[in-house]
């Protein structure tokens, strides 16, 4: 049974929350977000992250600035905007209820 397409959809849905949650902890740049997102398993791919950051920034959920003095080349750092913080809060509580509901249904043993 090929569950790869289903898994891809799961990741796609999770990516936005994962990115907002990571940026919400600390201002960071793309590669740092990838490292944290994928520390425990593949969630966000390199090729999906940057267009997603671009969109979140345009939607006003993230703000960015270029930092030139911590590496040989400039890095684009992201942080949450007020709107992003609000979105993250709402997504987080939706996620928690979803996770609880899923566990009750899917992982029930008897």
């Amino acid at each position: 049974m090929d569950i790869a397409p289903w898994q891809a959809q799961l990741r796609k849905g999770a990516a936005e929350l994962v990115v907002l949650a990571i940026v919400g902890r600390k201002e960071c740049y793309g590669l740092q977000i990838l490292e944290q997102a994928n520390a425990a398993g593949d969630i966000v791919s390199d090729g999906a992250l940057y267009p997603l950051l671009n969109r979140l920034e345009k939607d006003g959920k993230l703000a960015s600035r270029w930092v030139t003095d911590d590496a040989a080349h400039p890095r684009k750092y992201y942080q949450l905007t007020a709107e992003g913080t609000e979105t993250l809060g709402a997504m987080k509580s939706a996620w928690v209820s979803f996770r609880i509901a899923m566990r009750d249904v899917v992982e029930k043993t008897s």
Binding site: Y29, G30, L31, D46, Y50, W66, A71, H73, P74, R75
Partner: peptide, 17 residues
């Protein structure tokens, strides 16, 4: 230009890391 710079930065950082 901003997208290109960000992707370039990612590639260079990834190789180094």
């Amino acid at each position: 230009a901003s997208i290109i710079a960000e992707i370039r930065s990612h590639i260079e950082d990834s190789m180094a890391a």
